[in-house]
Design a protein around this nucleic acid. Structure first.
Length: 498
RNA sequence: GGCCCCAUCAUCUAGCCUGGUCUAGGAUGUUUGGUUCUCAACCAAAAAACACCAGUUCAAAUCUGGUUGGGGCCA
């Protein structure tokens, strides 16, 4: 019987493989683990599963750490690395796995298998074609000790298999309640390529035990792996952790989220200018909600309100439009100094911002008038580009408001020019006040409808922005300053003369 | 193919455990209106769902069985 762990302290882990960028699905698992740990005053452990030497790379480990920190997820313990502690790494624990592998081999719960890859594949195909579950036929299950020794001595390629008992495995999942599998369908499973190369299921079981993991919270794709791991726990005399299998993150077509249908790396979202607050808020609501109508949360609030019982069973589609909405929301909420700082790299990247060219103060204003239109930080450049060039390029037809003719537009611009030249206090409030007053006067003079401010303001705004949509002329003029503003009006007039 | 999981608006979901308060609530998106020089933002409103079939019950989104559909794992 598996030992229970009811009275254990809460200790959870996130255990990614450094074989590629951190996946958003993985980030969400990390987040749920982290929230569960913090909520229960437990520990969150990060374990890098890098036993696959071919595919694991240090740069991916680095990226995983960086992105988790970016989200605000910090791990609570790990081996000492010069004062700080790093994550656990499986490649640093090979001696440990070897010891347990030898134990299983020693008491005949595991054995060496020398079957060739191609043979196995052929058998598998054959079984599937007969409508059976593909499983190992046990060809090497009862080799004599001498035969095994000889094969090993001959250097025949081998793997280590674990003897799977023919029985039913039942376990309770925190999210799915009772789950039952028939282990007899599994066949003896490969747990290591050799003593120094444990495979996933084996290393996980050993580590979860030694790290005293109380709850294994992971994606649903691992649900059918669980019985194998339980069997191994039983064979090694380990306790059984409590399992919780999170619903999957899905593509729009409901298949498991994949690269083919959009970005899956957290870093993709990071670099496009999604804020960590938005990512966290978005991801946590995919498969969980507090049961209230609240849907904006900080990490701290989530720690308080999170409960694993409220996690959904069904998979959740990753809905980019909703992410955009949340990101826009957080962009609008962000203190302006912070937001400006975050925008600067994007402005530099697009070449708009050259070192020391524009004052901080001005930049802040530029970001301020652009922020309501931003869904992500990367959009700052196309939104704010109008503030940077000396000459705007646009079609003169754009200057036209409703049925104005060229001469009417020119009148309008001259009128604005007069007002702006005469303004004493060049600030946004005053600009707005004077131009509003001017608009009424202008409309009266020209016989336009009194309330339609477009006759004065549209040509002015286009002259200043060169765009069909932009911030208001007051905001632009305020940032540009009098000289540049008048310059742009003159350029618009020239355009009309052509 | 075998095994396992899942099923409320287009999407994320509340409600389901403990049937009646559900003519099914919220949010995103969509549409319309307001505000407005424009685009956003903001405000208001509308359209929009209990997969299907049985059963239990006075009463089922809610309980039971099945069907269908989707997904995951196994290579």
């Amino acid at each position: 019987m598996p030992k229970k762990i009811e009275d254990k302290k809460v200790r959870v882990r996130f255990a990614p493989s450094p074989t590629g960028p951190l996946h958003v699905g993985g980030s969400r698992s990390a987040l749920f683990n982290y929230l569960f740990a913090k909520k229960n005053k437990g520990k969150f452990i990060l374990r890098i599963e890098d036993t696959d030497l071919q595919r694991s790379e240090q740069r991916w480990t680095d990226e995983i750490l960086e992105e988790l920190k970016w989200l605000g997820i910090e791990w609570d313990e790990g081996p000492d690395i010069g004062g700080d502690f790093g994550p656990y790494k499986q490649t640093q624990r090979l001696d440990i796995y070897e010891k347990y592998l030898k134990e299983l081999l020693g008491n005949n719960k595991a054995y060496y298998c020398f079957c060739a890859e191609e043979e196995l594949e052929a058998k598998r195909q054959e079984q599937m074609s007969r409508g059976l579950a593909p499983k190992y036929d046990g060809a090497c299950a009862h080799l004599s000790a001498e035969a095994v020794q000889k094969n090993l001595a001959d250097g025949k390629s081998s793997v280590i298999r674990f003897r799977v008992e023919n029985k039913k495995i039942k376990f309770t999942d925190l999210i799915r309640q009772e789950v039952e599998f028939d282990a007899g369908l599994l066949g003896d499973i490969v747990i290591a390529k050799n003593l120094r190369t444990p495979l996933y299921h084996f290393a996980v079981v050993v580590d979860d035990f030694l790290m005293q993991i109380s709850h294994v919270i992971r994606g649903e794709e691992h649900l059918s792996n669980t019985p194998r791991q339980i069997l191994l726990q039983e064979a090694l005399g380990f306790y059984q952790p409590i399992y919780a299998h999170l619903p999957l993150m899905l593509n729009m077509d409901k298949s498991k989220m994949s690269k083919r249908q959009g970005d899956v790396a957290l870093s993709d979202y990071h670099s496009k200018g999604y804020l960590p607050e938005a990512m966290v808020n978005f991801m946590v609501l995919l498969g969980w909600n507090p049961g209230t109508e609240k849907e904006i949360f900080t990490l701290q609030q989530l720690i308080k309100e999170f409960s694993i019982e409220k996690v959904q069973k069904a998979g959740a589609v990753f809905n980019l439009q909703r992410l955009d909405f949340l990101n826009g929301f957080y962009i609008r909420e962000k203190p302006i100094e912070k937001l400006t700082e975050l925008c600067i790299p994007y402005l530099k990247e697009s070449g708009l911002l050259v070192e020391g060219q524009s004052s901080e103060h001005k930049l802040e204003k530029i970001v301020e008038v652009s922020r309501t239109r931003m869904k992500k930080l990367s959009e700052i450049s196309e939104l704010a580009d109008l503030f940077f060039p000396d000459k705007l390029i646009y079609d003169k037809d754009l200057l036209k408001w409703q049925k104005m003719g060229d001469n009417d537009i020119k009148d309008s611009l001259v009128f604005s020019e007069k007002i702006l030249s005469a303004i004493k206090k060049w600030d946004i409030k005053n600009l707005e006040k004077e131009l509003f007053a001017g608009s009424e006067k202008f409309n009266l003079e020209k016989g336009y409808p009194e309330k339609n401010k477009g006759y004065l303001l549209w040509p002015l705004r286009v002259a200043l922005s060169g765009k069909s949509f932009s911030p208001s002329p007051f905001e632009i003029a305020d940032i540009l300053g009098r000289e540049k503003t008048l310059e742009r009006i003159n350029r618009a007039k020239e355009l009309l003369n052509k």
